[in-house]
Design a protein around this nucleic acid. Structure first.
Lengths: 192, 192, 192, 192
DNA sequence: CATGAATGAGTATTCATTCAT
DNA sequence: AATGAATGAATACTCATTCAT
C-alpha cells in the first residue's frame, strides 16, 4: 500500500498523518506535560514534518486539546458493565498502560492538564463519561459519587504511573483491586 | 515599615526574599505546572528581581524542588489525629486553599509534577507522610492502604481545584466529607 | 535580483545564509574575539535572523570552530611557491586584509583563540599548512622551522592589525618585506 | 603579620588586596581573555569579595587595563643586556611562564587583547620597551626592527603556550634559541 | 574596610509559528 | 500534500555594577 506509483512525497495519507500526530501528542503529553512538549518533539515522534501540526491542527494548543478528547469515544465500560464489576473493569482499564497511551489515560491527562484548553476538554470528557455512570446510580449525590469514582482512578493512576510511590507502584493488581473495589463500593451502592 | 516608598532597592532581607520566591513558586506551579512557569513569572509574583532566583536557589529546577518540599514539616495531622477523625481532618486541609498555597497542597503538587526532580521530592514526601500513617494501621497492606488515602486526596483535590468538574467543585464540604469518610474508612479500618 | 524591497523574509538560500554567517563570524571574531562576539552580533552583521545560527551550526561554538577552519583550503602558497619567493608571498597574503577576512587570517584567528575549540581547530590548521612547508625544507628541525615561519606571520600580523604599534603599522610593505624576508631566510635555507 | 589584634575583618591590607586582584586578573586574562573572564572569577581567584574590584579599580575594564601594564617596569633586559646576548635573554624571559604570569607575559597579553583599552595600554607598553631597544640599534628602520623583535617573541609565545602546535611546544629551549637567535640577529645587526 | 543584597541589561538557546516552494 | 527557510518572542541563566550595612 506504499507502492502506489502516483504518490511521490506522500507515504502516509492525510488521515494517517493526523492520527500519528495525535498519538505522539498523547504519549508525550502524558510523560512531560503540555508545556514540556514542543511541536518539534511531537512531529519527530510521529515521523512527520513539524509544520504539519499547523496544517492539520492550526496550533499547538488545538493539537493537544484534540489529543485530550480523542479516545474518549468508548465509555461503554461505564454504561454497560454491571455495577458490581465496574470497579475492577475501570481499574483494569486505568492500569493498562498500552491502552492508556492509545486512548488517553485519565490520570495521565489530568496530570498534564496545565493548559486551560486541555482542562476544559478534560472537564467535559469526565463529566460526560461519569455523568453516564451517575445516571445508573441510586440515591442522592449521584453526580458527585460518580465523579468520586473518577477521582479514585485519577489518584491511583497518578501515584502508580507518574509519582511512583513504592506501595502503589509495586502492588499487584489483585491486591490493588481489593481496596479499589471497597472504596468504590461505598460510592456505587445506594447510601445505607 | 515595609511601605517606605523612597526605597528603590527592595528591603534587604535575604530570608524574606527567599521565602517570597518559594511562596510564589508554589502558587504558580499549582496553577501552571513547572514547565509552564518561568523564573520571570516567579520573580514578578514575588516582587523581586529575577536574578535572585539564581542567587538563592541556583537554578529553576532547584527552586521548584525546594518549593515542593517546603511545608511538609507538619505531618502532625497524620500522626496525631485519632484515626476516626482523620479523613475529615485531611479533607479539610486539602480543601483549604489558603493553607494549600502556603504549605504546598498535595494535589496541586502532583498536578505540577512533570519535572523529574519535583517528582522525586514529591515521592519522598508522600512516602514519609503516609508511611507515618501506615505505621498506625492494623492489618495487611498497611503501606498500600495509607498511600490510597493519599490517592483519594489527590484525586478529589485535582477534580475540585484543577479540572473543576461540576459536582466535585460545587459540592459543599459537608457532603463531600461524607463520601470521603466512607472511602477512607475502608482503608483505615482493619480489613473485615 | 537580490534587492527586491518587497520581500520581508530574506531570500531563501540556505547556502548563502550559511556563508554569510561564517563570513560575519570570521570578521567579528578577528576584531573582538570569540567571547567578545555574541551570536546576535554575528546574525546582525550577516543580516539574518539570530536563530539561523542554531539551525545551521547548532551552537555558537560550532559556528566559530567552522569559521576558524574555512579558508584553509588554499595552502597552495605554501606548497607551490618557490622557496625563495615564499616569504614575500606569505607576507602579502597576511597583509591583505580583504583576503584575510574572507579566508581567515592567521594572526586574527590566533588573536581570537581564547576558546578551546577554536584553538584546537587552529592548531590542526597550522600544523597541516606548515607541515607541508616542513616537507620542503632541508636540514634538521624542519617542523620547528616551518612553525617559526608561521610565528613570524602571527607576530607581525598582530602588531600591525590588532595592537597597532606605530612602526609596524605604518611601515610600507616593501620595507617590511625586507626584514621579514631576512628573518624567514634563516629558517628556510638549510642551516649553515 | 596576620596576627595584628587590632584588625578584625582585615586579613590583607589594601595594597595586598589590590595586588592579589591584579595578579588574578593577569593570570585569568592570559588563559581566557578579557571577555572570557568575569569579575567574579577574578575576585574568587584572588580570594576577595567581588565588589572590591570596583572599590579599587572602578570597573572591570580599568582592572584589566592596569593588569596589562603592571610588570612592565623591568625593561632592564632590553636596555642593559649586551645586544649579542639579547635574543637569548628575551627568549628565556618569554618562556618562563611563572614570571610571565607574575609580570604579564607579552604573548599572553597580546593574545588576550580583544578589549580596546587593553590594546591601548599594550601598544604603549610595547612601544616604550622596544623603543628603548631601537635606540640601541644602528642603521635604518631601527623602530621597526625593534618591534619585529617583539613580533617574534609574540609569535613564538603564542604558538608555544596558547595554540600549542607540536613542534614549537615540544622543542627544547636550546634548539628554539638557535633559531630565534638567528632570526633576531638579522634585526639587531646593522643591515649589511 | 569589607560584604551581602539587589538590579537591569545581556548571553546562548529554544519555541511556536509563518512563508515560499 | 509536504518541506525547508525564515522569523520574533520567549526561556534559563550570567554579567557588570550599585546600594546599604
Amino acid at each position: 500500500m506504499d507502492a502506489d506509483p502516483t504518490t511521490r512525497h506522500r507515504r502516509r495519507d492525510a488521515a494517517a498523518t493526523r492520527a500519528a500526530l495525535l498519538h505522539a501528542a498523547r504519549s508525550l503529553m502524558a510523560r512531560h506535560g503540555v508545556e514540556g512538549t514542543s511541536t518539534r518533539d511531537v512531529a519527530a515522534a510521529a515521523g512527520v514534518n513539524q509544520t504539519l501540526v499547523y496544517r492539520y491542527f492550526g496550533s499547538k494548543e488545538k493539537l493537544f486539546a484534540e489529543a485530550a478528547c480523542a479516545g474518549a469515544e468508548s465509555p461503554n465500560i461505564v454504561t454497560k458493565t454491571p455495577l458490581a464489576e465496574l470497579p475492577r473493569a475501570l481499574l483494569d482499564r486505568a492500569l493498562d498502560l498500552t491502552q492508556a497511551e492509545e486512548s488517553g489515560d485519565l490520570a495521565a491527562l489530568v496530570g498534564a492538564a496545565n493548559d486551560e484548553h486541555v482542562r476544559a476538554v478534560l472537564r467535559d470528557r469526565i463529566e460526560k463519561s461519569f455523568g453516564a455512570l451517575a445516571a445508573r446510580l441510586d440515591g442522592p449525590d449521584a453526580d458527585l459519587r460518580a465523579e468520586l469514582v473518577a477521582a479514585i482512578l485519577i489518584g491511583v493512576g497518578l501515584l502508580r504511573h507518574k509519582i511512583g510511590t513504592t506501595a502503589t507502584s509495586t502492588a499487584d493488581r489483585e491486591t490493588l483491586a481489593i481496596y479499589v473495589d471497597r472504596m468504590m463500593a461505598t460510592l456505587i451502592r445506594p447510601s445505607p
